[in-house]
Amino acid sequence: MNAISALLRRELTLAMRRRGDALTALFFFVIVASLFPLGVGPDPKLLHLMGGGVVWVAALLAAMLSLGRLFAADHADGTLEQLILTPTSPVVWIAGKILAHWLVSGVPLILMAPVLGIQFGLSGAELAVLMWSLLLGTPALSLIGAIGAALTLGLRGGGVLVSLLVLPLYVPVLIFGAGAVDGAISGLGSEAHLSLLGGILILAFMLTPWAVAAALRISIE
């Protein structure tokens, strides 16, 4: 446990020292979501209907943008080798790293989402559902994305490859996340979608650290 708290402290300190990295992804999120009203026109009804989906797609792309940082820097400076050689089980510190990644790149998206939702005319209840869906969905994005980041570690053009690998895997999260907001807008209710998102999160939490550990083992050889 001591090692994990040290890891979290290290990751968060590093993120604080390089605030620019996290802010870039956040601004990317804001800009992508703000492009849609410019592209599809100012019809408030249309924007209201597509608001949830647009914010979700933007969040997904922003989450992917920050995946490169998850292992690449540690791989380059030798820290990853040292982590693998600690007596702590790899699954434990990998989960710690993903948690830190979510805190730095996922949580700001959740906090920024209502501001973007207002742009699309979402009501208070709809904004709450949007935030709930992101709260359950973004950790799943970090977890699933970590597999892609670990597999493409040290490859040339890894950034593009990561999107090809990871985006298809993000589809279920996107469908249920955007579906939850749609449910709130159309009055059909969003509980089912949120429960399924929660299910995906639990499944991802149980399985991905093992997959990432195996992928890192291959990449480091």
Partner: peptide
């Protein structure tokens, strides 16, 4: 303990933080 080609020193951390955290991570605070 393994000492490899890459020194596993983080540029954004101070020398003290680097060593302190490296020891904690390796399980000998």
């Amino acid at each position: 303990v393994y000492f490899g080609h890459a020194p596993a020193v983080k540029e954004d951390l101070s020398a003290f933080e680097n060593l302190d955290l490296a020891c904690r991570l390796a399980g000998f605070p």
